[in-house]
Write a protein that binds this DNA or RNA. Structure first.
Length: 424
RNA sequence: GUGGAUGUAGCUCAGUUGGCUAGAGCGCGGGAUUGUGGCUCCCGAGGCCGUGGGUUCAAGCCCCAUCAUCCACCCCA
């Protein structure tokens, strides 16, 4: 074995690709239904976009980016997430000049340099939405319900929705100061990691799993008790809209998100059957992002869903996506002459829309039948010397084993009758 | 970046205290049926035992290194 796929990357092979196609198809359907439109941005961007957008002190920017210099000496980074690119595109293309809000969705690969583990890869795939230029809490609820609707359509009904508000530029700094003060007072009980986080990123202390830290966190001031009036109102309204939609949620004041641009609403959908990486999708509002990477103050909200994690979640629950594989017809040939006749027939059948296959390995009749069986062929069309002489073909129903010989001139018509295909 | 586990056939895995040509099941190919799949039976192909060193008369097994995979931490999708 000479080559491996690079660490943390995966080949997606048949029949798994069918699942991916199904997910993509459903995504297009459902997102369209909510009137979100697809946007496709580059896989790489100038590094600075992510540094500014995601935040210099985040883990992503500090240690997880695939950054390189191109031949022109520019610093380029493979996108680690989708939102910064979408907002950049929105601003660059002056979409703000059109009727608002703008509702986009995207689907594609993202890249982060991390040690792979269950549910985490260096190249992974997200589908996500962004609703830009409105601060309406109804949109927060719409985004969340859209994600839940997608999961529901895949058969996932029992995932936990965690909801929080992380405040805004007004109230968060005040809260962070308060939290810092509290943490410093209880510093002795915190793990080393958290001690150093008090100054660097105090919100992160909140989701430390260390037991001793947990006991400190339990009585720490909660962001939800320290929101300014407008943030508190927004948070209440989001909950009200979620209630209207009958969506269950868990208020989780400890939920913080690792990207700097989040404001107000933050949410994660977790599947506790998943292990350490249990967030299937997560997102929130990012009212400060556009100003950070552009010059306009534009609100926005979105989520990103990890396709690999969605697949893991389905697997954990033994849910099979309704994907179909196999062929309608398999042509079994006996002899060189029959192969040549059949090759024309193969083409005609395919032109009529039948998924049709033939042997390319010169194998025995038995083996050809076996192949037909393995491909789940509905019918096998057998053509040998007898049939050649009669200008006919023998068709065999692979389920019942029934066979009959029919004239080649009637074959196309006959197969239309027998094979249930709506588009034929 | 840190820690733990694991690398033997296409896949899942056996392989004893180191001891002759390295095994099974499944899958794959052929045959039993000179033109018929699923069940059964027979035969067959396919292994630098992850890689490189070392110890030994002798290494799949012991030691070291290295690479890869998995899991966890950090953090996130």
């Amino acid at each position: 074995m000479k080559f491996n796929a690079p660490r943390g990357t995966n080949d997606i092979l048949p029949p798994d690709t069918l699942k991916w196609q199904y997910i993509e198809k459903k995504t297009h359907e459902i997102f369209s239904n909510y009137n979100y439109q697809e946007i496709r941005t580059p896989i790489f961007e100038y590094t600075e976009l992510f540094q500014r957008g995601i935040g210099e002190v985040t883990d992503i920017v500090e240690k997880e980016m695939y950054t390189f210099e191109d031949k022109g000496g520019r610093s380029i980074t493979l996108r680690p997430e989708g939102t910064a690119s979408v907002i950049r595109s929105f601003l660059e293309n002056k979409i703000y000049g059109q009727a608002q809000p703008t509702k986009y969705y995207y689907i594609g690969p993202m890249f982060r340099y991390e040690r792979p583990q269950s549910g985490r890869f260096r190249q992974f795939h997200q589908l996500g939405v962004e609703a830009i230029a409105s601060n309406d809490p109804a949109l927060d609820a719409e985004i969340i319900s859209l994600g839940m609707r997608l999961l529901q359509d895949f058969g996932l009904n029992d995932l936990e929705l965690h909801l929080n508000s992380v405040g805004c530029g007004e109230c968060r700094p005040t809260y962070v100061d308060k939290l810092k003060k509290y943490l410093n007072e209880n510093k002795e009980q915190l793990c080393d990691n958290c001690k150093s986080r008090i100054d660097r990123n105090p919100l992160r202390v909140l989701d430390c799993k260390n037991d001793s830290c947990q006991s400190v966190i339990k009585d720490a001031p909660k962001i939800t008790d320290n929101l300014c009036e407008s943030c508190a109102d927004h948070f209440n309204d989001v909950q009200e809209y979620l209630d209207i939609l009958n969506l269950d949620y868990i208020i989780n004041p400890l939920l913080v998100r690792g990207l700097d641009y989040y404001t107000n609403t933050a949410f994660e959908i977790k599947d506790n059957a998943l292990g350490a990486q249990d967030t299937v999708f997560g997102g929130g509002r990012y009212n400060g992002l556009a100003e950070e990477i552009g010059s306009r103050d534009l609100p926005g909200i979105g989520f990103a869903l990890g396709i690999e994690r969605l697949l893991l979640s389905l697997e954990a629950k033994d849910i099979e996506l309704p994907v179909e594989s196999g062929v309608d017809l398999y042509i079994t040939v006996i002899g060189e002459q029959a192969k040549k006749e059949s090759f024309k027939l193969l083409d005609q059948l395919r032109n009529k829309g039948f998924i049709t296959e033939i042997d390319y390995l010169g194998r025995s009749v038995g083996s050809q039948m076996k192949s037909a069986d393995r491909m789940n062929a509905e019918y096998t069309i057998i053509i040998g010397e007898n049939e050649l002489n009669n200008n006919s073909a023998t068709i065999r129903n692979m389920k019942s084993g029934d066979e009959k010989e029919i004239q080649l001139s009637n074959l196309l018509e006959e197969m239309k009758q027998l094979v249930d295909k709506e588009d034929i």
